[in-house]
Design a binder for these strands. Structure first.
Lengths: 343, 343
DNA sequence: GGCCGAAATGGGAACGGTTGCAATGTATTT
DNA sequence: AAATACATTGCAACCGTTCCCATTTCGGCC
């Protein structure tokens, strides 16, 4: 229970005006006399009046708040996107309410419900690895609440989305390895339910096909984004009769896990095994050998997502085709994928 | 402008009850007949009623929202704290509204004002490098709005705080270098206005004093937390007539910047120059040589800060002494500070 | 059957703003 | 001087809850 702050009514009483006039004066309504405006603003300033945004959002039915749901805040990957999102949002006068789903479908469902109850003006969601359908978002549609999915998305054209061209990212990375002369290329993939995982697998297979290299089932290991996922997957790969001579990992962390195992087993990078990660995290630049990585412009993705969402918030009625913005990844070639010339 | 959702009034009309009764039934008020409760809850469920949290916070004068202000979301350092904070907050039924001040005093001032207007129940703040006084937070005190400062704090006993024992962190790091046999130890320090910078300097000087090593002005370089800060500072240090044989940097990033310069100049780590960073970021483990670092439990700091804030929110009246929670840092000894035995 | 107290429900004023419309005051026109 | 237009301001409803207080209902008891 807070201490009472100055309200419109207080100002009105002091000035001998009605609260409507005071309200209008403060917001610069044209129908208020200039002297009145000046007097009102002066008193408001002197008394430190600040409008109660809760009351305002109740009557205006908009809160200038955007709800954001991501799997985890502390993943630099998402934190970067948050930074970009925050930047654009606050420029437009919006605040961000940020929730993490902890990769749990149940939590995701619950925080979305809370955010809707809190009357956010729109939702920005990156789904969990467990989320395989949109059913928990359906009633949002009924509420006409604008929603944008970003990064972690599902197939379908229900919601506007912002994503990376993951197919292309994996494709250029794999082709780069092929160009370098690697031929037995494995892929440490992400959680199989995630669309991004499947897209990267698709790009990987596409590249092999372009080069007429047969796809080998045992070179595709489903795993996860974390370092220990990469370690486990790499162990499996090295246990094969014919281990790969290059690896494309689904994240930089997974790549570093793989790197650890590769080096522990006495192989050298990039001579014996080439390695490429995904995400372009700062880490990749400072390890030795430095890690070639598919860099994803996450801050840009955050910015673009909020811009798209704001468009839907500001012009809600406009019928528009299904929107899908796809950002280009960029291959940062570093040491870990540069195969020395064959002698 | 949203589509209308189901309200108490709708339910009341349908059931032939008053909205007071419906409201009480849904919240399990004891004075409502059991059958009524069941009927109300059934209809609420069927119609997908969700209470409007905005209206509720207007009348209850609490929003179950905590405002967080940090310099930058995307710094892993703060992102970790956010993760811990979110965890505790959501367990207690609170949401986090997160704003970044971008290291600007003006933005900090403005977002705090907005958060107060939004009637958050409490504030969690880590100040900018420009913030040298509390004046913009004074009126919060008048509003009786609980506030907790964390990590980046100012001296004083106005607000409860959660911080690291930075003095001790710098002290054990420096003493570790001394134990290893390094004698010309430099310190790449943070922005001079920040309390944490000054604390780390204090710990560094304390260690030198404990070992009767004279403090040398030219070995203390004011800098910043970023990688390029570390680079510039290190260049200055290497330009000295007698360059240092070990460096304690104010952050892991600054340390990596220093490392780059050290290696570019042909020195080896840890043989010729020992190096220690601050923060315990994931980076530090994967570089070669791996980086000794003063690890700060940021997630824990986030958790503790929210817990403290919640205590002030729930029991606001209780007079209590000035609270200051100090978390212990931990020295993670890795390769970069292990001086080989002298021959 | 009337009375009493408890149990259950309803009425209505908040909370702090916004907003359509009515009411007042002032200046201009005929 | 009356009519008209326009500039200001006020009234009151509303947004969706909560909660105090009054009212109704009901069962038990004499």
């Amino acid at each position: 229970m807070r201490a009472k702050s100055v309200t419109l009514k207080d100002l009105a009483r002091e000035l001998g005006l009605s609260k409507s006039t005071v309200s209008r004066a403060l917001r610069g309504h044209p129908k208020v006399k200039v002297e009145t405006k000046i007097a009102v603003k002066a008193l408001a300033e002197a008394w430190g009046y600040e409008p109660d945004l809760v009351a305002r959002s109740l009557v205006q039915r908009q809160s200038f708040t955007i709800g954001v749901v991501i799997p985890r805040i502390e993943f630099p990957y998402f934190a970067m996107a948050l930074g970009g999102a925050q930047e654009v949002a606050s420029k437009a006068g919006y605040n961000l309410v940020i929730c993490q789903s902890n990769e749990s479908y149940e939590i995701e469902r619950s925080v979305i419900r809370t955010l809707v109850s809190s009357k956010v003006d729109g939702l920005l969601i990156s789904i969990t690895g467990q989320t395989t359908a949109y059913d928990h978002m359906e009633d949002i549609h009924k509420h006409r609440l604008p929603i944008v999915l970003f990064d972690r998305i599902l197939e379908g054209d229900v919601f506007p989305m912002v994503s990376m061209d993951n197919v292309r990212g994996a494709l250029i990375a794999t082709e780069h390895l092929l160009t370098q002369g690697y031929r037995r290329i494995a892929h440490i993939a992400g959680p199989p339910d995630l669309f991004v995982s499947r897209q990267r697998i698709q790009g990987y297979r596409q590249a092999l096909q372009n080069w007429d290299i047969p796809f080998r089932e045992e070179y595709l290991v489903s795993s996860g984004f974390r370092m220990n996922n990469g370690e486990e997957a790499m162990k499996k790969l090295l246990d094969l009769d014919q281990p790969p001579d290059a690896v494309l990992a689904v994240s930089d962390n997974a790549a570093l896990g793989a790197k650890k195992v590769i080096e522990a087993e006495g192989f050298t990078i990039p001579d014996q095994i080439g390695l490429i990660g995904f995400n372009g995290e700062p880490l990749s630049k400072v390890v030795r050998p430095s890690l070639t990585t598919v860099s994803l412009p996450m801050a840009e993705m955050g910015r673009v997502s909020v811009k798209l969402l704001l468009k839907h918030i500001v012009y809600p009625a406009e019928p528009r085709p299904h929107e899908m913005i796809i950002l280009p990844p960029q291959l940062l070639v570093r040491e870990s994928s540069l195969k020395p010339e064959q002698v």
